[in-house]
Nucleic acid binder design. Structure first.
Length: 425
RNA sequence: GGAGAGGUGGCCGAGUCGGCUGAAGGCAACCGCCUGCUAAGCGGUUGUACGGGUAAAACCGUACCGAGGGUUCGAAUCCCUCCCUCUCCGCCA
C-alpha cells in the first residue's frame, strides 16, 4: 500500500507509475473521493469537538451540583446531528481504502519499462548449458524411467498439477531442501523458521495477496484460513504490527514450506511435469531491514539464492523483471532462471524482490530509529532460495546421462547417504 | 468439545459508584545535573493515526484502552456480538 499523503501529493507520478506498469487503473476519482472524505471529516470533527466541550461542561456543572439539563437537551440534538453525519464516513473511508489497496507499488527507476516477459532485461549469465551427445529427455520421461516421479498416481490421489515423488526422487528433493537451508543458515546468516502453512486473511492483506488476488489462493472452506502460496506470507507476517529495535535489523530468515497455488487462468500452460503445480516445495529467504539498506540487501539476497545454483552447477541467468511483469507489491524483482535442456531455454526458479515499505505499511512493520527515537516503516524483501520442485527438474534434466541415470551434484551427496547417481532399481 | 481467567501506551501494570484518564505507577529510552571513568542519585522529556494549521515548526481538533455494534449530553469503565490468548478437564499426532 502506498502512503495516502504521498498519493495525494504526487498523483501524476503515481499515474505515471501505473502507466509504466501497463496497469490501466485510473486514479481519476481519487482526488474527488479524497476531497469529499476530508470535507466530511472536518465537519464531523467540529461537531464532536463541540459535543466534547459541552460534555465536559456538564460534568463540571454536575459536580458543582448545578443544573445542566438545558445543555444536555441541546447536546441531544448535536448528538443526533453527529450520528447523521457520521453515517457517511465509513463508506467514504472504505472507498479510499479500497482505492489505495488496489494501487501497486511504484517500480524503481532502474526497472526497465516493458509490456511483457520479452522486455525483461538479462543482467548476467552463469555457467554454460551442457552439450548432450544423445537425445535429451525431459524430467517427466527421466522420472518415469527411473520410477522416481509418478504423475499418474498423483492425479489419482489429488488431480492434475500434483506430483508424487518416490524413492530417490523423494530423497533428492528432501536433500535439496536440507542443503539449501544449511547453506543459508550456516553460511549466509539466516535464521531458520518453520512457520504455519496456513495463514489468516490479515496476514494475506499484510503481504498484498489480498484483497486483489484471492482467486490465486486455496481457502479452507468455512474458515478465515488460506493455504500459503509462499513462505513470504507467514514469515513476513512474523513481525506484523510490531515495532522492532533498530539493532535487530536486518532480520534475515529462511523457511522451508510447501506452497499452494490455485493456478487459476493458467490452463494449458506447463501442463506437463512438475514445473507448474498446485503444491510445490520451496525454501524462502525473507529480510526486514532499514530503508536505506534495502537495495543493497536485495543484491545480497539475490546473490545468496544464486549461490545455491552455482554450488549445484546449474547454468542460470539473472533477469530484471520489466514494469509489466513486476509483481503487485514489488518495486524491483530479479528472477533467477535455470537452464532446462529439454526446453532449450531458461525457466524461472527464483524471484527476489524488494517491496520497499509497501508491505510494511500494510502490515505495520516498523522499527524505532536510534537517532530520532521515532518509529519508521521498515523495508521488506524476499526471494526463493530456491523452488525445490523446479530444482529437481533442473538437476534431472541437466545431469541426465545417456544410460538414463542421473548424476547427483557433489554437494547433495552427503544428504543422500553418499549416493552419487540415480539409477533404475 | 466442557469449565474458568484475561486482552490497556515500546514493555510491565493501575483504573474507584460512567465525567477532572491519552490514560496513575514502574521499567526502558533520551536530555540535563552530578562524577576522574562507570554505576547509583537528582531534575526533565518521550504514543500512534487522521484532519486543520505553518515556509517548516509551534499549535489546534478528532479518533484509538482486542474488533464491531448499542445505551448516554458524555464510555477504558455499562450492555450485546465476535476474535484472540492463557489455565484445567476430555480427545488426539
Amino acid at each position: 500500500m502506498l502512503d495516502l499523503k504521498f498519493v495525494r501529493e504526487n498523483l501524476p507520478a503515481v499515474e505515471e507509475a501505473l502507466r509504466r506498469r501497463r496497469a490501466p487503473a485510473s486514479l481519476g476519482g481519487f482526488a474527488d473521493l479524497d476531497r469529499k472524505r476530508r470535507d466530511l471529516l472536518v465537519k464531523v470533527e467540529a461537531l464532536r469537538a463541540e459535543r466534547n466541550a459541552a460534555s465536559e461542561e456538564i460534568g463540571r456543572l454536575r459536580r458543582e451540583k448545578k443544573d445542566a439539563s438545558g445543555l444536555m437537551q441541546q447536546m441531544k440534538e448535536v448528538a443526533a446531528r453527529i450520528k447523521e453525519m457520521e453515517a457517511g464516513l465509513p463508506e467514504a473511508e472504505r472507498q479510499m481504502e479500497e482505492a489505495l489497496l488496489n494501487i501497486p507499488n511504484i517500480p524503481d527507476p532502474s526497472v526497465p519499462e516493458g509490456a511483457g516477459e520479452e522486455d525483461n532485461a538479462v543482467v548476467r549469465t552463469w555457467g554454460t548449458p551442457g552439450a548432450f551427445s544423445f537425445p535429451v529427455r525431459d524430467h517427466v520421461d527421466i522420472g518415469a524411467a527411473l520410477d522416481i516421479l509418478d504423475f499418474d498416481r498423483a492425479a489419482k490421489i489429488a488431480g492434475a498439477r500434483f506430483c508424487l515423488s518416490k524413492g530417490a526422487g523423494a530423497l533428492l528433493e528432501r536433500a535439496l531442501i536440507n542443503f539449501m537451508l544449511d547453506v543459508h543458515t550456516r553460511e549466509h546468516g539466516y535464521m531458520e523458521v518453520l512457520p504455519p502453512f496456513l495463514a489468516n486473511s490479515a496476514s494475506f492483506f499484510g503481504t498484498g495477496q489480498l484483497p486483489k488476488f484471492e482467486e490465486d489462493l486455496f481457502r479452507v472452506a468455512g474458515t478465515d484460513y488460506f493455504l500459503v502460496p509462499t513462505a513470504e506470507v507467514p514469515v513476513t507476517n512474523i513481525v506484523r504490527d510490531e515495532i522492532l529495535p533498530a539493532d535487530s535489523l536486518p532480520l534475515k530468515m529462511t523457511a522451508y514450506t510447501p506452497c499452494f497455488r490455485a493456478e487459476a487462468g493458467s490452463y494449458g500452460k506447463d501442463v506437463r511435469g512438475m514445473i507448474r503445480q498446485h503444491q510445490f516445495n520451496k525454501v524462502e529467504l525473507v529480510k526486514v531491514c532499514r530503508p536505506e539498506d534495502s537495495w543493497r540487501e536485495l543484491e545480497a539476497l539475490t546473490a545468496d539464492a544464486e549461490d545455491i545454483l552455482k554450488r549445484l552447477g546449474l547454468p542460470y541467468r539473472v533477469v530484471t523483471l520489466c514494469t509489466a511483469d513486476l509483481g503487485f507489491s514489488s518495486a524491483k524483482t530479479y528472477d533467477l532462471e535455470v537452464w532446462l535442456p529439454s526446453q532449450k531455454r531458461y525457466r524461472e526458479i527464483s524471484s527476489c524482490s524488494n517491496f520497499t515499505d509497501f508491505q510494511a505499511r500494510r502490515a505495520k512493520i516498523r522499527y524505532r530509529d536510534d537517532a530520532s527515537g521515532k518509529t519508521r516503516l521498515a523495508h521488506t524483501l524476499n526471494g526463493s532460495g530456491l523452488a525445490a520442485g523446479r530444482t529437481v527438474v533442473a538437476v534431472l534434466e541437466n545431469f541426465q546421462q545417456e544410460d538414463g541415470s542421473v548424476v547427483i551434484p557433489e554437494p547433495l551427496r552427503p544428504y543422500m547417504g553418499g549416493m552419487d547417481r540415480i539409477v533404475k532399481r
